[in-house]
Design a protein around this nucleic acid. Sequence first.
DNA 1: TGCATATTTGCATTATGACGCAAATACGCA
DNA 2: TGCGTATTTGCGTCATAATGCAAATATGCA
Lengths: 104, 104
Amino acid sequence: MDESLDPELFKALADPTRAALVACIAKCGRGCSVGEVAECCAVDLSVVSRHLALLARAGVLESEREGRTVRYRVRYREVTTALRALADAFDQCCPDGGCGGASC
Amino acid sequence: MDESLDPELFKALADPTRAALVACIAKCGRGCSVGEVAECCAVDLSVVSRHLALLARAGVLESEREGRTVRYRVRYREVTTALRALADAFDQCCPDGGCGGASC
DNA sequence: TGCATATTTGCATTATGACGCAAATACGCA
DNA sequence: TGCGTATTTGCGTCATAATGCAAATATGCA
Protein backbone atom coordinates (compact mmCIF):
# COMPACT_ATOMS: atom_id res chain seq x y z
CA MET A 1 0.00 0.00 0.00
CA ASP A 2 2.58 2.55 1.09
CA GLU A 3 4.78 1.82 -1.91
CA SER A 4 1.86 1.91 -4.33
CA LEU A 5 0.65 5.16 -2.83
CA ASP A 6 3.60 7.08 -4.22
CA PRO A 7 2.91 10.82 -3.96
CA GLU A 8 5.30 11.60 -6.82
CA LEU A 9 3.10 9.99 -9.44
CA PHE A 10 0.03 11.77 -8.12
CA LYS A 11 1.78 15.09 -7.81
CA ALA A 12 2.64 14.81 -11.47
CA LEU A 13 -0.99 14.23 -12.44
CA ALA A 14 -2.49 16.65 -9.92
CA ASP A 15 -2.01 19.80 -11.96
CA PRO A 16 -4.80 20.45 -14.49
CA THR A 17 -2.40 21.74 -17.10
CA ARG A 18 -0.20 18.67 -16.79
CA ALA A 19 -3.21 16.38 -16.88
CA ALA A 20 -4.28 18.05 -20.12
CA LEU A 21 -0.82 17.60 -21.59
CA VAL A 22 -0.75 13.92 -20.69
CA ALA A 23 -4.23 13.41 -22.14
CA CYS A 24 -3.14 15.21 -25.28
CA ILE A 25 -0.13 12.97 -25.79
CA ALA A 26 -2.01 9.82 -24.81
CA LYS A 27 -4.85 10.48 -27.22
CA CYS A 28 -2.37 11.32 -29.90
CA GLY A 29 -1.02 7.80 -29.48
CA ARG A 30 2.46 8.65 -30.64
CA GLY A 31 5.42 10.73 -29.59
CA CYS A 32 4.69 14.44 -29.67
CA SER A 33 7.06 17.38 -29.88
CA VAL A 34 6.96 20.10 -27.26
CA GLY A 35 5.56 22.55 -29.77
CA GLU A 36 2.76 20.20 -30.79
CA VAL A 37 1.73 19.59 -27.22
CA ALA A 38 1.81 23.31 -26.49
CA GLU A 39 -0.94 23.87 -29.06
CA CYS A 40 -3.45 21.98 -26.96
CA CYS A 41 -3.31 24.39 -24.03
CA ALA A 42 -3.10 28.08 -23.35
CA VAL A 43 0.15 28.33 -21.43
CA ASP A 44 3.52 29.47 -22.66
CA LEU A 45 5.75 27.04 -24.51
CA SER A 46 8.37 27.28 -21.80
CA VAL A 47 5.79 26.22 -19.24
CA VAL A 48 4.89 23.21 -21.35
CA SER A 49 8.55 22.29 -21.61
CA ARG A 50 8.89 22.40 -17.84
CA HIS A 51 5.74 20.35 -17.29
CA LEU A 52 6.84 17.69 -19.73
CA ALA A 53 10.23 17.44 -18.07
CA LEU A 54 8.55 17.04 -14.70
CA LEU A 55 6.24 14.33 -16.04
CA ALA A 56 9.24 12.51 -17.43
CA ARG A 57 11.02 12.70 -14.08
CA ALA A 58 7.89 11.28 -12.44
CA GLY A 59 7.93 8.36 -14.86
CA VAL A 60 4.73 9.26 -16.66
CA LEU A 61 6.45 10.21 -19.91
CA GLU A 62 9.69 9.39 -21.65
CA SER A 63 11.56 11.63 -24.04
CA GLU A 64 13.76 11.11 -27.03
CA ARG A 65 15.56 13.67 -29.10
CA GLU A 66 15.08 13.58 -32.87
CA GLY A 67 17.21 16.23 -34.43
CA ARG A 68 16.00 19.59 -33.26
CA THR A 69 12.81 18.27 -31.77
CA VAL A 70 12.21 16.28 -28.60
CA ARG A 71 9.41 13.75 -28.66
CA TYR A 72 7.56 12.88 -25.49
CA ARG A 73 5.64 9.61 -25.23
CA VAL A 74 3.45 8.16 -22.50
CA ARG A 75 4.98 5.26 -20.59
CA TYR A 76 1.77 3.27 -20.88
CA ARG A 77 2.96 0.10 -19.26
CA GLU A 78 4.54 1.78 -16.26
CA VAL A 79 1.61 4.09 -15.61
CA THR A 80 -1.11 1.47 -15.95
CA THR A 81 0.91 -0.94 -13.82
CA ALA A 82 1.25 1.62 -11.06
CA LEU A 83 -2.45 2.50 -11.15
CA ARG A 84 -3.57 -1.12 -11.05
CA ALA A 85 -1.10 -1.96 -8.31
CA LEU A 86 -2.61 0.75 -6.16
CA ALA A 87 -6.12 -0.45 -6.92
CA ASP A 88 -5.05 -3.97 -5.93
CA ALA A 89 -3.52 -2.66 -2.72
CA PHE A 90 -6.81 -1.03 -1.80
CA ASP A 91 -8.66 -4.23 -2.61
CA GLN A 92 -6.40 -6.17 -0.27
CA CYS A 93 -7.49 -3.89 2.54
CA CYS A 94 -11.11 -4.70 1.79
CA PRO A 95 -11.17 -7.90 -0.28
CA ASP A 96 -14.86 -8.17 -1.09
CA GLY A 97 -15.16 -4.55 -2.16
CA GLY A 98 -18.15 -4.04 0.09
CA CYS A 99 -16.25 -3.60 3.33
CA GLY A 100 -17.81 -6.75 4.76
CA GLY A 101 -14.54 -8.58 5.27
CA ALA A 102 -13.16 -9.96 8.49
CA SER A 103 -11.88 -6.59 9.60
CA CYS A 104 -15.10 -4.73 8.89
CA MET B 1 -9.55 9.72 -20.88
CA ASP B 2 -10.25 13.32 -19.92
CA GLU B 3 -12.93 12.27 -17.46
CA SER B 4 -10.78 9.50 -15.98
CA LEU B 5 -7.82 11.86 -15.66
CA ASP B 6 -9.54 13.90 -12.98
CA PRO B 7 -7.00 16.19 -11.30
CA GLU B 8 -9.10 16.35 -8.12
CA LEU B 9 -8.48 12.73 -7.24
CA PHE B 10 -4.76 13.09 -7.82
CA LYS B 11 -4.54 16.37 -5.97
CA ALA B 12 -6.04 14.59 -3.00
CA LEU B 13 -3.42 11.84 -3.10
CA ALA B 14 -0.50 14.08 -4.05
CA ASP B 15 0.32 15.30 -0.57
CA PRO B 16 2.54 12.95 1.48
CA THR B 17 0.64 13.64 4.68
CA ARG B 18 -2.69 12.88 3.05
CA ALA B 19 -1.29 9.75 1.44
CA ALA B 20 -0.15 8.58 4.87
CA LEU B 21 -3.59 9.26 6.32
CA VAL B 22 -5.31 7.31 3.57
CA ALA B 23 -2.88 4.43 3.98
CA CYS B 24 -3.50 4.50 7.72
CA ILE B 25 -7.25 4.27 7.34
CA ALA B 26 -7.03 1.72 4.53
CA LYS B 27 -4.74 -0.59 6.49
CA CYS B 28 -6.94 -0.18 9.51
CA GLY B 29 -9.73 -1.62 7.41
CA ARG B 30 -12.50 0.12 9.34
CA GLY B 31 -13.79 3.58 10.02
CA CYS B 32 -11.36 5.68 12.03
CA SER B 33 -11.96 8.76 14.12
CA VAL B 34 -10.03 11.94 13.45
CA GLY B 35 -8.12 11.55 16.66
CA GLU B 36 -7.11 7.98 15.85
CA VAL B 37 -5.84 8.94 12.43
CA ALA B 38 -3.93 11.88 13.86
CA GLU B 39 -1.83 9.49 15.94
CA CYS B 40 -0.21 8.05 12.83
CA CYS B 41 1.40 11.28 11.75
CA ALA B 42 3.17 14.25 13.26
CA VAL B 43 0.91 17.12 12.23
CA ASP B 44 -1.62 18.97 14.32
CA LEU B 45 -5.06 17.48 14.81
CA SER B 46 -6.65 20.41 13.03
CA VAL B 47 -4.49 19.72 10.01
CA VAL B 48 -5.62 16.11 9.99
CA SER B 49 -9.22 17.22 10.19
CA ARG B 50 -8.76 19.47 7.18
CA HIS B 51 -6.99 16.77 5.19
CA LEU B 52 -9.71 14.23 5.89
CA ALA B 53 -12.40 16.68 4.85
CA LEU B 54 -10.53 17.35 1.62
CA LEU B 55 -10.16 13.63 0.95
CA ALA B 56 -13.87 13.19 1.51
CA ARG B 57 -14.66 16.01 -0.91
CA ALA B 58 -12.42 14.34 -3.46
CA GLY B 59 -14.35 11.10 -3.06
CA VAL B 60 -11.52 9.11 -1.53
CA LEU B 61 -13.11 8.91 1.91
CA GLU B 62 -16.60 9.07 3.34
CA SER B 63 -17.53 10.27 6.78
CA GLU B 64 -20.21 9.48 9.25
CA ARG B 65 -20.87 11.05 12.58
CA GLU B 66 -21.23 8.74 15.59
CA GLY B 67 -22.00 10.83 18.61
CA ARG B 68 -19.09 13.08 19.30
CA THR B 69 -16.75 11.32 16.95
CA VAL B 70 -16.62 11.34 13.17
CA ARG B 71 -15.51 8.15 11.47
CA TYR B 72 -13.76 8.29 8.11
CA ARG B 73 -13.70 5.26 5.85
CA VAL B 74 -12.06 4.60 2.49
CA ARG B 75 -14.46 4.46 -0.44
CA TYR B 76 -12.78 1.34 -1.74
CA ARG B 77 -15.07 0.69 -4.64
CA GLU B 78 -15.06 4.24 -5.97
CA VAL B 79 -11.30 4.65 -5.66
CA THR B 80 -10.37 1.34 -7.24
CA THR B 81 -12.93 1.89 -10.00
CA ALA B 82 -11.49 5.31 -10.79
CA LEU B 83 -7.92 4.01 -10.84
CA ARG B 84 -8.75 1.05 -13.08
CA ALA B 85 -10.85 3.22 -15.39
CA LEU B 86 -7.88 5.47 -15.90
CA ALA B 87 -5.60 2.52 -16.52
CA ASP B 88 -8.11 1.22 -19.07
CA ALA B 89 -8.26 4.62 -20.74
CA PHE B 90 -4.50 4.60 -21.14
CA ASP B 91 -4.66 1.08 -22.53
CA GLN B 92 -7.19 2.16 -25.13
CA CYS B 93 -4.72 4.72 -26.37
CA CYS B 94 -2.15 1.99 -26.81
CA PRO B 95 -3.99 -1.37 -26.84
CA ASP B 96 -1.09 -3.77 -27.06
CA GLY B 97 0.97 -1.96 -24.47
CA GLY B 98 3.88 -1.74 -26.82
CA CYS B 99 2.66 1.26 -28.79
CA GLY B 100 2.29 -0.82 -31.95
CA GLY B 101 -1.43 -0.22 -32.41
CA ALA B 102 -3.17 1.32 -35.38
CA SER B 103 -2.27 4.83 -34.31
CA CYS B 104 1.37 4.09 -33.70
C1' DT C 1 30.54 29.71 -40.10
C1' DG C 2 26.08 32.00 -40.04
C1' DC C 3 21.20 31.59 -39.64
C1' DA C 4 16.66 29.65 -38.49
C1' DT C 5 14.02 26.59 -35.62
C1' DA C 6 13.16 23.83 -31.25
C1' DT C 7 13.75 23.50 -26.59
C1' DT C 8 15.51 24.69 -22.12
C1' DT C 9 16.84 27.72 -18.34
C1' DG C 10 17.18 32.10 -15.29
C1' DC C 11 14.52 35.15 -12.95
C1' DA C 12 10.75 37.76 -10.91
C1' DT C 13 5.85 37.60 -9.89
C1' DT C 14 1.87 35.52 -8.30
C1' DA C 15 -1.15 31.79 -6.75
C1' DT C 16 -1.91 27.79 -4.10
C1' DG C 17 -1.65 25.07 -0.30
C1' DA C 18 0.29 23.17 4.20
C1' DC C 19 0.80 24.19 8.89
C1' DG C 20 0.00 25.57 13.91
C1' DC C 21 -2.44 28.01 17.27
C1' DA C 22 -6.50 29.72 19.22
C1' DA C 23 -11.32 30.14 19.15
C1' DA C 24 -15.68 28.26 17.86
C1' DT C 25 -18.88 24.56 17.24
C1' DA C 26 -21.08 19.86 17.98
C1' DC C 27 -22.41 16.44 20.94
C1' DG C 28 -23.10 13.41 25.04
C1' DC C 29 -23.78 13.29 29.80
C1' DA C 30 -24.64 14.59 34.60
C1' DT D 1 -28.10 24.14 31.87
C1' DG D 2 -23.15 23.37 32.61
C1' DC D 3 -19.05 20.64 31.63
C1' DG D 4 -15.80 17.76 29.09
C1' DT D 5 -14.46 15.67 24.80
C1' DA D 6 -14.23 15.57 19.59
C1' DT D 7 -14.00 18.10 15.61
C1' DT D 8 -14.07 22.13 12.74
C1' DT D 9 -12.99 26.83 11.42
C1' DG D 10 -10.56 31.57 11.28
C1' DC D 11 -6.36 33.51 10.57
C1' DG D 12 -1.52 34.54 9.88
C1' DT D 13 2.88 32.57 8.25
C1' DC D 14 5.75 30.04 5.37
C1' DA D 15 7.01 26.88 1.60
C1' DT D 16 6.15 25.20 -2.84
C1' DA D 17 5.03 25.58 -7.37
C1' DA D 18 2.80 27.68 -11.68
C1' DT D 19 3.45 31.22 -15.03
C1' DG D 20 5.47 34.52 -18.58
C1' DC D 21 9.20 36.82 -20.56
C1' DA D 22 13.77 37.09 -22.06
C1' DA D 23 18.07 34.96 -22.73
C1' DA D 24 20.70 30.86 -23.48
C1' DT D 25 21.44 26.42 -25.52
C1' DA D 26 20.94 22.63 -29.04
C1' DT D 27 20.54 21.13 -33.58
C1' DG D 28 20.12 21.11 -38.69
C1' DC D 29 21.06 23.31 -42.95
C1' DA D 30 22.91 26.47 -46.51
